[in-house]
Amino acid sequence: MSRAPIQDVPIVEDPIRLGQFLKLAGLAEHGAHARELLEAEEVQVNGRLETRRGAQLRAGDVVAVGGQRARPVHGT
């Protein structure tokens, strides 16, 4: 079984908080949804469970929620 492709999401500032990135990448509909995903332990960063909404992400980190994966990249 193959993994989902990784969606590159341009960011302006590096680092970016995980809660903000979940919304920006479309992995969460809004801030409360991001919190719910984290509290339900459904979010992984670089293959490790993450429950902190304020966790700092840097360009290249891979965030997975369910079958979707995304990573922040420096915008142009």
Rank of each mutant, 00 (worst) to 15 (best):
S2M: 07
S2L: 12
R3I: 06
A4P: 05
A4I: 14
A4H: 11
I6D: 04
Q7V: 07
Q7L: 10
Q7H: 08
Q7G: 02
D8P: 11
V9A: 08
V9C: 07
P10Y: 10
P10M: 13
I11M: 08
I11H: 06
V12C: 07
V12E: 15
E13K: 08
D14N: 15
D14L: 08
P15D: 11
P15L: 15
I16Y: 02
I16L: 09
I16A: 11
R17D: 11
L18N: 02
F21M: 02
L22S: 10
L22H: 03
L22C: 10
L22V: 13
L22N: 08
K23R: 15
K23M: 12
K23V: 09
K23W: 02
L24I: 12
L24W: 02
A25D: 06
A25Q: 05
A25M: 09
G26C: 10
G26V: 13
L27Y: 02
L27E: 01
L27I: 04
L27C: 00
A28S: 14
A28K: 12
E29T: 12
H30V: 03
H30G: 12
A32F: 01
H33R: 10
A34F: 04
A34L: 13
A34M: 10
R35F: 01
E36I: 14
E36S: 15
L37F: 11
L38S: 08
L38R: 00
E39N: 11
E39Q: 10
A40Y: 04
E41D: 14
E41A: 15
E41V: 08
E42N: 06
V43H: 00
Q44G: 01
Q44M: 11
Q44I: 01
Q44D: 01
V45Q: 04
N46S: 13
L49I: 12
L49S: 14
L49Y: 03
E50D: 08
T51Y: 12
R52A: 14
R52M: 14
R52T: 07
R53L: 11
R53G: 03
R53E: 14
G54K: 06
G54A: 13
A55G: 02
A55W: 00
A55Y: 03
Q56C: 12
Q56K: 15
L57I: 06
R58S: 13
R58I: 07
R58K: 15
A59Q: 06
G60D: 04
G60C: 13
D61I: 02
V62Y: 04
V62C: 10
V62F: 05
V63D: 03
V63R: 00
A64F: 04
A64D: 01
V65W: 05
G66V: 12
G66Q: 09
G66D: 10
Q68P: 03
Q68F: 12
R69L: 05
R69Q: 10
A70N: 05
A70P: 00
A70E: 06
A70I: 13
R71P: 00
P72R: 12
P72V: 08
H74W: 07
G75F: 00
G75W: 03
T76K: 11
T76G: 08
